[in-house]
Computed example of a mutant assay.
Amino acid sequence: MEVNDISFENLPRAVAHLVSEIAEIKFLVERKEPPIISQKRIPLDITEACQIIGKAKPTVYTLVRKRLIPCYKNGKKLYFFEDELLDWISQGKKKTLKEIEAEAKLDFGKNFKKISTNFNKN
């Protein structure tokens, strides 16, 4: 339908045409996946890094010197990235008692089968 064809007599047909166009646009918009926006990695200074990991500056400097914490150095200044610090923290997870017990039962079952198999051979 052309824009010039709209008159009072053609109004119902024009509205029907607009409704179908809107439905088609809505379908296309809903079908499209949301755009993936890449987040910029903004470097943090040592003060911000200390706040994120909850350690004092001397402790962080010691971790850097021992190469235990991910960091970057440009000139005399240290830089950190939040995602790397959070990954570093998550790598230090301690096992719960239930996890330790489950591992022990699993290992005991494997070792018990080996021992019983060897005992039956002799």
Score class of each variant (00 low, 15 high):
V19L: 12
G75Y: 07
P70G: 03
L63T: 01
S90V: 05
D45V: 01
E30R: 05
N111A: 14
E2N: 13
M1Q: 06
V19T: 10
Q91C: 05
S90T: 09
E99N: 04
L44H: 03
K77Y: 08
E30M: 06
N122K: 12
Q91A: 03
I46M: 10
K73M: 07
P70Y: 06
K121V: 03
A49I: 04
Y79N: 01
F8L: 14
E48K: 13
N10E: 14
A104N: 15
E84N: 06
A56I: 02
P43M: 06
I115Y: 10
H17R: 02
E24T: 14
I22N: 12
I89T: 03
Y79M: 12
K55P: 00
T59A: 11
K66H: 15
D83G: 02
E33C: 10
A16T: 05
I89E: 09
A16G: 09
K66Q: 15
I36R: 08
S90F: 08
A49N: 03
L78F: 11
G92T: 07
E2Q: 14
A23T: 11
I53F: 04
E99D: 08
E103V: 00
L11V: 02
V15T: 08
P35F: 00
C50D: 10
Q51D: 14
V15A: 13
D87T: 09
D83P: 04
E103H: 00
N118D: 11
K113P: 00
V29Q: 08
K98P: 01
Q51T: 05
E24Y: 06
I89Q: 11
E103K: 09
G109P: 00
K40I: 13
N74G: 11
S20C: 08
N120C: 02
A16Y: 07
I22W: 06
K110T: 07
A49S: 06
I115R: 07
K26R: 15
K76W: 01
R31C: 01
L106F: 14
K40L: 12
N120H: 06
D45M: 03
R41W: 05
Y61N: 13
V19E: 09
P43D: 05
P12W: 02
I53K: 05
E101H: 14
Y79F: 15
R13L: 12
F8I: 12
P70S: 03
L63Y: 15
V64R: 05
F80C: 08
S38C: 10
K114V: 09
Q51P: 00
P12Q: 09
K55E: 05
F119D: 12
K73W: 00
K55G: 00
K57R: 15
M1S: 06
E2V: 00
P35M: 04
K55D: 03
N120E: 11
A49R: 02
E84T: 01
I6S: 04
L86K: 10
D45G: 07
K73T: 04
L106C: 12
V64W: 05
